[in-house]
Simulated assay, not measured.
Amino acid sequence: MFDPERRARHGPPGWPQQVPPPGAEDWQPRAVAWLLDQAPPEYRGYPPVRHHPLLLVWLVAHHVDAQQEAVRRATGTARRDLSAHLPPETAPQVFAVLDAEQLRLRRLARSVDLLRQAMTGRRFVPRL
C-alpha cells in the first residue's frame, strides 16, 4: 500500500535507509558518509573525494559497476576455475553466494544512482 509519509521520511524506493531523503536537513553529509562506507577505504584519504559529493558518488558508481562485472565474470568461470579444487556438492553454494552478491550489488547500484540524481538536482515526486 502506498504510504506518502513513509516516502517523505525515506525517499524513493531504493533510497538508502541510513540517508534522510533529499531536502531533509543534513541529507547530503549523511549521503557522503554512506557513500564512503560503500567505497574502498582508501577513498577516505583523498580530500577531493570527501569534499566533493558529486565526485564521490561518481567514483562509487564506477566501483559498483566494476564489482558487478567481477561477479558476472566469476559466475561465468566458476565451474571451470573451481571444479578441480572444490567438491562438486559445493557448486550450488558457490552460485548461491554469487546470486546473492549480484542482488546486493544491483540494489547498491540503484541507491548510488538515486543519490547521484538527487545531488544533481532531481526532485523525487511521490506517485500514486
Rank of each mutant, 00 (worst) to 15 (best):
D3P: 06
V97Q: 13
Q93K: 10
D81R: 15
Q18L: 02
E101D: 13
L35W: 00
R104K: 14
D3T: 09
T120V: 03
A109V: 09
A24K: 03
E89Q: 11
P40K: 10
R106P: 01
P16N: 01
R110G: 00
R72C: 08
V57H: 07
H85G: 01
W15C: 06
A78M: 04
V97D: 14
G14K: 09
P41E: 15
L128R: 15
E89I: 10
V97M: 09
H52A: 11
L114I: 10
L114R: 08
S83Y: 03
P20C: 07
R106F: 05
W58P: 04
E69R: 11
L59R: 11
T77P: 01
E101F: 02
P4S: 14
A31G: 12
A74R: 10
V125K: 13
L105C: 05
W15G: 07
F124A: 11
D26V: 02
Q117W: 12
G23T: 00
E42D: 15
A78G: 08
M119C: 00
A70V: 02
A96I: 05
P21F: 03
R30M: 07
D81I: 09
Q102W: 06
S83I: 07
P29C: 07
G11H: 04
P22I: 11
R122H: 09
P40H: 14
P12V: 15
H52D: 02
P92R: 14
T90L: 05
A24L: 09
A78L: 07
R106H: 02
L56F: 05
Q18E: 15
R72H: 10
G45M: 04
L55I: 11
R9S: 14
D65A: 08
W34N: 00
D81E: 13
S111M: 02
A39H: 00
P126F: 13
L82A: 11
H63R: 00
E69Q: 12
P47Q: 10
P47R: 08
S111K: 03
R79Q: 14
V49A: 14
P12H: 04
F95I: 01
Q28S: 01
F124D: 14
R9H: 09
P29I: 05
H85K: 15
V64A: 07
V49T: 10
A33Q: 11
R7Y: 13
L82S: 00
D37K: 01
Q18G: 01
